[in-house]
């Protein structure tokens, strides 16, 4: 099971409720996160559109999870308050595939990384949310853009594996406007928890208009 840090954002919710992922991801509302929330999990996923200030206040939980050998996946933006790296914003180009299809926002990918192994160039990048202008000395670069700026990186320095990217697979898959994201997200999910998701990304109308279960 993967814990999905949850900022109350609908796309994060839609992703975790989708038929093919709901048994593999557990929503962890960020303001209720405790040590007990993380018990028994194989991995933590921090999606794009997270509450960076709230994560900073609970960063000890994340680094303790890593220390115990867990995997942590961070997507989109972050702050140096809890991650030893510097994220910087950049304009989002989500139309390159129409205007300039031979020039995607990622130009170099290490396809030996388990998440990327077997993915096509098109499936390894759709758009990015900023870059890393500084990463830890102990980190390995997984993806860069045409300017050589870091898009994805990884380190085992903290015990488990910390994998960070400015891609936004979970939020974007929840939005369901990009049709090929099953390829990336399924690889990511299998890497995080050891189980390959099966089936279709189904949205059920009954999941909308709900009371919040922890209320």
């Amino acid at each position: 099971m993967i814990g999905l840090l949850f900022n109350g954002v609908w796309s994060q919710y839609a992703f975790a409720k989708a038929g093919k992922y709901q048994h593999l991801y557990r929503l962890l509302y960020i303001h209720d996160l405790t040590e007990a929330s993380l018990q028994g999990l194989k991995a933590i996923a921090v999606p794009f559109q997270s509450n960076q200030a709230a994560i900073r206040e609970r960063k000890g939980l994340i680094y303790n999870f890593l220390k115990q050998g867990g995997k942590v996946f961070v997507a989109g933006d972050s702050t140096a308050d809890w991650l030893d790296a510097q994220w910087e914003d950049r304009p989002v180009n989500n139309y390159w595939w129409v205007k300039d299809p031979t020039n995607p926002p990622v130009s170099q990918t290490d396809y030996s990384h388990p998440v990327y192994e077997g993915l096509s160039v098109r499936h390894a990048c759709w758009h990015t949310h900023g870059v890393y202008t500084r990463i830890p000395e102990h980190a390995r670069i997984v993806q860069t853009n045409g300017r050589g700026e870091v898009i994805s990186w990884e380190t085992n320095h903290y015990g488990g594996t910390l994998f960070v990217t400015t891609l936004d697979p979970i939020v974007e898959h929840g939005i369901q406007q990009i049709t090929h994201l099953d390829h990336y997200v399924d690889k990511l999910t299998e890497w995080l928890c050891g189980v390959k998701p099966e089936g279709q990304f189904e949205m059920q109308a009954a999941d909308y208009g709900v009371a919040w279960e922890n209320d």
């Binding site: 609908w10 796309s11 839609a14 949205m203 109308a205 909308y208 208009g209 709900v210």
Partner: peptide, 15 residues
């Protein structure tokens, strides 16, 4: 997209 039920009268649904 208000997936919880708080907005009076109307409801958003993902699809």
């Amino acid at each position: 997209g208000w997936f919880t039920h708080w907005l009076p009268g109307s409801q958003w649904v993902a699809d």
